[in-house]
Simulated scan of single mutants.
Amino acid sequence: MAITHTAETRPKRRRRPPEEARRIVLEAARTLLVEKGPQALTLQGVAAAVGMTHGNVTHHFGTSAALHAALVADMAEAMAREAELSVQQMRAGHIGPETVVARIFEALNRGGYGRLVAWLAASGDIATLEPFFAAVEREVTLLRGVEPPETDSHVRGTGPITFMLLAGALGATLLGPDMVRATGLTDAAVAQLFVTQMQSMRAT
């Protein structure tokens, strides 16, 4: 015999705390980013991936731009922490510059983050990238604070190195393998180019 649930007997759907719901949505967005690319990061697409209604995702993020900004901020914080740790380890002599270069490139490639940043920039959605720029500025200011005071910050040190590495890593995210092939280089040779540039630009 079929059981008919009344309002009193119907199982209640558990209401997730707002922070948990946001975390679940962001995790689903990261998966979509890897599997289908940044163009798939719509509120409808993420809602379908996570098993929520479009209204629920809208309640937590409001717009696709807000979802993109939250994802950029989340990934920027992780990248900034890794970059800061890598530079501190290099300055202490625990790792070499080649490891720093490899980690920066990996941080932007991981989870399609570099593709997202480049896609938003190409779309003209610069405001959404503000968390990325804020994280970069914060880390540059922090790391520059322990450099020799006479360092020309326009030529040497954290600022120029960060610009060079991030610009190169973003370019490699989009065109890396094909550009390496077109120029007749190897991945190892390209990595060494960045290491050499980084060494020449370090504060002394």
Rank of each mutant, 00 (worst) to 15 (best):
residue 50 V to R: 14
residue 51 G to P: 12
residue 51 G to E: 13
residue 52 M to D: 10
residue 55 G to S: 14
residue 55 G to F: 07
residue 57 V to A: 10
residue 59 H to S: 10
residue 59 H to F: 15
residue 60 H to D: 07
residue 62 G to E: 05
residue 63 T to C: 02
residue 65 A to G: 03
residue 67 L to S: 03
residue 69 A to S: 14
residue 72 V to S: 04
residue 73 A to N: 06
residue 77 E to V: 13
residue 77 E to Q: 14
residue 79 M to N: 09
residue 81 R to D: 15
residue 84 E to R: 15
residue 84 E to N: 13
residue 88 Q to W: 08
residue 88 Q to E: 14
residue 89 Q to G: 01
residue 90 M to L: 13
residue 91 R to Y: 07
residue 93 G to N: 05
residue 93 G to C: 06
residue 94 H to Y: 10
residue 97 P to A: 11
residue 100 V to H: 12
residue 101 V to Y: 06
residue 101 V to F: 09
residue 103 R to A: 14
residue 104 I to M: 09
residue 106 E to G: 06
residue 108 L to A: 00
residue 109 N to P: 00
residue 110 R to C: 02
residue 113 Y to F: 15
residue 116 L to C: 01
residue 121 A to W: 04
residue 123 S to Q: 14
residue 124 G to L: 08
residue 125 D to V: 01
residue 126 I to M: 10
residue 129 L to R: 05
residue 132 F to D: 02
residue 132 F to V: 02
residue 135 A to P: 13
residue 136 V to T: 10
residue 138 R to C: 05
residue 138 R to Q: 13
residue 139 E to L: 14
residue 140 V to G: 01
residue 143 L to C: 06
residue 144 R to T: 15
residue 145 G to V: 08
residue 146 V to I: 12
residue 147 E to N: 09
residue 148 P to W: 12
residue 151 T to N: 07
residue 155 V to D: 00
residue 156 R to K: 08
residue 161 I to P: 00
residue 163 F to R: 04
residue 164 M to S: 10
